[in-house]
Design a protein around this nucleic acid. Structure first.
Lengths: 354, 354
DNA sequence: CTGAAAGCGCTAACAC
DNA sequence: GTGTTAGCGCTTTCAG
């Protein structure tokens, strides 16, 4: 059936065969005069090794400049030390802040984080997931609010733990989520403006197909209706500063409102800029409220009144929830509800008396 | 010497032994009625396969929901499909912009990007490199300006291609770099202010141990001296908005300058904020210039005059240089010189007449 | 155009 | 406390 063949050439010189390792665990073992098992165990501290032996191994590692091949390790153990983190827009400061906290936590547990960017495209979220599946990541933080149908199932089928930033449906030992109470935040914002005396309040939303944009938009509508306000104007933009600018310019083109609530800070920046370009002073002529409390919001001029998501916690909580599932410390995923807090700063004031 | 032992249990049921793959290349091969080799070649298009055979394989892949194990692939080929990107501060918008471009390019070439953050700590740069070496990344973009001695050598010894954001010493087929002409940028900034009539120009620098901070600081000193200006005040901060704020407050505490050049935009934001807190109007009472042209600089109020690094190109150029080396399209690394351009916006104006 | 099988570097079960 | 070795899933050489 098949021909017999001499074993292929093995490493004989110090050079690499077929582009292989410069120095591997075998070399270290030889140098230290121990078996490769011992080296492995010293490296991973997976069983007791006599101190002198361990020291010899470590010396050999040092001398040879050995570095463990993680691909091999991952293959042998069947799981990778890389976690996936998928975000909507790495250029929106909200996400770097989250990313940093997530990474810092991961680092403490010797995990790497592969950050992927979808640009708010649900299709790309699934693409990213597929790529991460190939890497056999043990866990995934999907911190985008947009997703294709079937995404959650795709992940679960691979037995990968995941934390979502939206409601992924029924929980399981593989599924957790972090839910921000967008509605409450928007309500606070509207209440604040109403209490200041505003009646013409407009809203600049995110792209209407995004879940998080929908929630905020819907909450705005409900709150305004509850207040019995008819004068309610809504434009949809795209969560970017540019979008905020153009959204605002549309609002100002006829019957300008006295206050604008923006679905995120980035759009609020754009809106502030637009207002000034039209000669409106903030907050004397028009009040602006943002959402997210990205670190820049306090450095804008005037400092932006915004609905704060506890962003320092976001990345940490996501990691923690993921880690618990990966290490099976929970029989079931978690639902983490995150409240918001209105930070009143100088971009809001009572409307001008006419 | 060693005992004989029956071969360990093999996969017999559809279940996993020792936590292994749910579906692997073998399963696909069996299902398609071909050999493993054929599946591999269909997957990677590394040799001609009869169309019908290929189709059968693809059907099997589809039906089984097979996803290639990249750890195994990487182990077998001896190189990973992950590139490392090390940045100083993912929360400084300069870096997300760079990151995004780099990642977009990488994606086009089926590469993943592992982004790591050093927080401006040179020690952490080396740590990151070591972790990436373990992953056997084929290439590394070290876009930090701070580094330990020996870093370049550490990387080169592992035969890893790298692009640096500083001058790494002699080039080699493994080493490229992107050098921003900081000095020229600072000179433009100072010239601009001088031409407006400013004589008391101060400087807020980055952390003094960083190379990029040094360059900018030095250029400022030289340019001021060349102009024969004695009234030159310099404070060192840390490239953050907070740092800019406190640096500025120190400058304003005695003999306030009429203009401030900041070593990056983030510090300029902080400085602007501080000026306003002290009752100074920008630009009437004091002019501010930034450096980097992060996307927010045009949304600040007033829009920030800044020295622009062509940031859209930065990530792309870094990737391109790396890719060329990885594919040995160049016999030698590249030195990419990047010029800057002063964007005059509304944060600068002639000094007030006394 | 296709298949068999060696081997990538490591882990972990088993033997001593 | 330490060593031997099967096997992780894949690529790729060699043989048809």
């Amino acid at each position: 059936m098949t021909g017999f063949r001499e074993p292929r050439t093995k490493r004989e010189t110090g050079f690499r065969v077929r582009g292989r390792e410069l120095v591997n665990i075998k070399n270290v073992a030889d140098r230290a005069g121990v078996s490769i098992a011992t080296v492995s165990h010293v490296l991973n501290q997976t069983r007791r090794v006599r101190p002198e032996t361990a020291a010899r191994v470590r010396t050999a590692i040092e001398e040879l400049g050995y570095s463990q091949n993680l691909a091999a390790r991952n293959l042998a153990t069947g799981r990778s030390n890389i976690l996936g983190l998928i975000v909507s827009d790495i250029q929106n400061p909200h996400f770097p802040e989250l990313t940093r906290n997530f990474q810092d936590q991961a680092l403490l547990h010797n995990m790497e984080v592969l950050v992927m960017n979808t640009g708010y495209d649900p299709q790309r979220t699934s693409d990213c997931v597929r790529r991460l599946i190939g890497l056999r990541v043990p866990g995934l933080a999907i911190m985008t609010t947009e997703y294709d149908t079937g995404l959650v199932e795709l992940v679960a089928r691979q037995n990968i733990r995941a934390v979502y930033y939206f409601n992924p449906g029924p929980l399981s030992p593989l599924i957790s989520c972090i839910l921000v109470n967008y509605g409450e935040g928007i309500r606070e914002a509207v209440n604040h403006l109403e209490e200041l005396g505003h009646r013409q309040i407009a809203f600049i939303g995110g792209a209407p197909h995004l879940q998080s944009a929908m929630y905020r938009r819907q909450a705005f509508i409900e709150q305004m209706q509850a207040r019995g306000e008819g004068a309610m104007r809504i434009v949809d933009a795209d969560f970017s500063a540019e979008g905020g600018y153009y959204g605002c310019s549309r609002l100002l083109s006829s019957a300008p409102p006295t206050a604008i609530v923006c679905a995120n800070d980035l759009m609020a920046f754009g809106a502030m800029h637009c207002c000034r370009d039209k000669g409106l002073r903030i907050p004397q002529d028009i009040s602006i409220v943002g959402f997210d409390n990205i670190s820049f919001s306090q450095y804008s001029h005037p400092p932006l009144t915004t609905v704060a998501i506890p962003r320092d916690k976001l990345g940490q909580l996501a990691f923690k929830a993921l880690w618990e599932m990966i290490n099976r410390q929970t029989s079931e995923g978690r639902v983490i509800q995150l409240g918001t807090r209105l930070l009143v700063r100088e971009s809001t004031a009572p409307p001008r008396k006419n």
